Computed example of a mutant assay.
Amino acid sequence: MKRKKNIWEGLIIGNFIFLVIVPILTILVWVGTERWAWPSLIPQKFSMRAVKGILRNRQQFAWLCTSSLFISASVAFLSVVIGTMAARALECYDFFGKRLFSFIAMFPFLVPGTVFAMGVQITFIKCGLSGTVLGVIIVHLICSLPYAVTLMQDGTRAIGVKLEEQARVLGAGALQAFFKVTFPNLFPVMLSAFSMAFVVSFSQYFLTLMIGGGNVKTFAIVMVPYLGSGERNFASIYSVIFLVIMLLVFGILEWIVGRFTKAQEVEYY
């Protein structure tokens, strides 16, 4: 039995290496590769042209990263705030149209992206939001909210409202009961919703192109055209930077969760 278990563990690890690690290593090799034709096992020509291109335009690249991080962080923050309020409304209260509201919250999942983009673009042009950062943030927010609402609903359902009600009975106000009792328990879920919304926003290409109209530059807007072209070294270095940014964001959020959990344990004891 133990031998079969070890075999299955080996197969899982092997599949993980093949499906995840090998592609990442291939991308890293392509960063410094100019030509690598089939069926050769090693590149025929090496070049640091992509790296030099990034360094040569480092000011523009820094501005691009800053702009993308600002947009995605804004979207993620708003997604958490709105998602938390929506989740509490759906899980803690009964009101007329509750099922309809829950369906509308998930509606962006059901509408095809192309149809949604065309409708939003026409609306945003009429509202003067097309080609603006605010318009891009709003359209990213629409796409990110279903993820945030779903995660926050699960977290709110698991925690419940009994502890908050007990705090209210003991004399705490509504805001005090939420921030002292419910918020500490929901905080890890909020960070999960934040990270999911951040990823959705940071990797959004089509809607950014449609609503931004070329005026709003994000990391995905610059990276995706390289992926479809023959410039594999540039596509690879942007992919590597994209991966590094995601890992840094997740690492920071994980560090925050760890610090917050330790602080709560110290306060408890």
Rank of each mutant, 00 (worst) to 15 (best):
A167N: 08
L11C: 10
G14T: 09
V31E: 08
S195K: 06
A86V: 11
V169G: 05
Y238H: 13
E231T: 01
T182W: 10
G212N: 05
P112F: 02
F183T: 07
L41H: 08
V22P: 15
K217M: 04
I24T: 00
P108L: 06
T132L: 02
A117C: 08
I27M: 06
P188N: 05
V199F: 15
F18G: 01
R259D: 15
F178Y: 14
V199Y: 14
M118D: 04
V136M: 04
N185M: 14
S229W: 02
R168F: 08
R56I: 13
Q204E: 13
K2I: 13
V169F: 09
F116H: 01
P23D: 05
S195G: 11
G155I: 15
I122N: 15
A89V: 06
N6D: 13
A50D: 09
S229M: 03
S239C: 08
V29D: 07
I24W: 00
Q153F: 09
L134Y: 13
T66Y: 12
E267L: 15
A148K: 13
R88D: 13
V240T: 02
Q264Y: 06
L78A: 14
V200G: 07
K52F: 12
K162I: 09
L11A: 12
L129N: 04
K2Q: 12
A148S: 15
N215C: 01
F96H: 06
A37S: 10
F194V: 03
F109Q: 03
A235Q: 10
G155R: 15
V240P: 00
L170W: 08
V29R: 09
V224P: 00
F96G: 04
V216K: 03
I221C: 00
Q153I: 13
I142R: 00
E231Q: 07
I7E: 08
M85E: 10
F183W: 14
N233L: 04
S68G: 00
I7T: 12
V29A: 13
V51C: 04
E254V: 06
L19Y: 02
A220V: 00
E231W: 03
K217I: 02
Q204A: 05
